[in-house]
């Protein structure tokens, strides 16, 4: 008889542990998922306009726009690329990128400069280029 009681008790304890485990696991999953989504959304790099680029801090701003024709300068000696970018509002801002020029730089018309604004110049640490030949649909 005692053995039967013990069995019942252990089963009940097991059920309790199981439901406690489920609640803990469920909470962990929900909280973890929420935290992860928040981490991604909160720290993702925003796309900015020229006006916003001038105001927002950070070096992960994505400034998208057109390269103003005739302003593109590629200096092999100092390995810098500079140009004026014009956003959708029509505002312009000089962009400087230090590093080897992307190989299809000259063909690009639209650009996304990744970086931050420092004293009147947008210092890009990465350039993402859109070349017209690839963009058949638009």
């Amino acid at each position: 008889m005692g053995g039967m009681n013990q069995f019942r008790r252990s089963r009940r304890a097991g059920a309790f542990a199981w439901s406690l485990g489920s609640v803990l696991l469920g909470t962990t999953v929900v909280v973890g998922f929420g935290a992860m989504v928040a981490a991604f959304l909160g720290n993702a790099s925003p796309y900015v306009t020229v006006q916003e680029a001038k105001q927002q801090p950070g070096d992960n701003l994505h400034l998208a726009g057109d390269i103003v024709p005739g302003t593109l300068k590629m200096s092999a000696p100092s390995q810098t690329v500079s140009f004026m970018v014009r956003d959708e509002q029509g505002d312009t801002l000089p962009v400087v990128y230090r590093g080897a020029q992307p190989s299809n730089m000259g063909a690009a018309t639209k650009v996304v400069a990744v970086g931050g604004h420092k004293s009147g110049v947008f210092e890009a640490r990465k350039l993402l280029l859109k070349c017209p030949s690839k963009y058949e649909g638009s």
């Binding site: 991604f40 790099s45 925003p46």
Partner: peptide, 10 residues
């Protein structure tokens, strides 16, 4: 909302 990008380091 305004578009955002998740970069490699994030």
């Amino acid at each position: 909302q305004a578009p955002k990008v998740v970069e490699e380091r994030l």
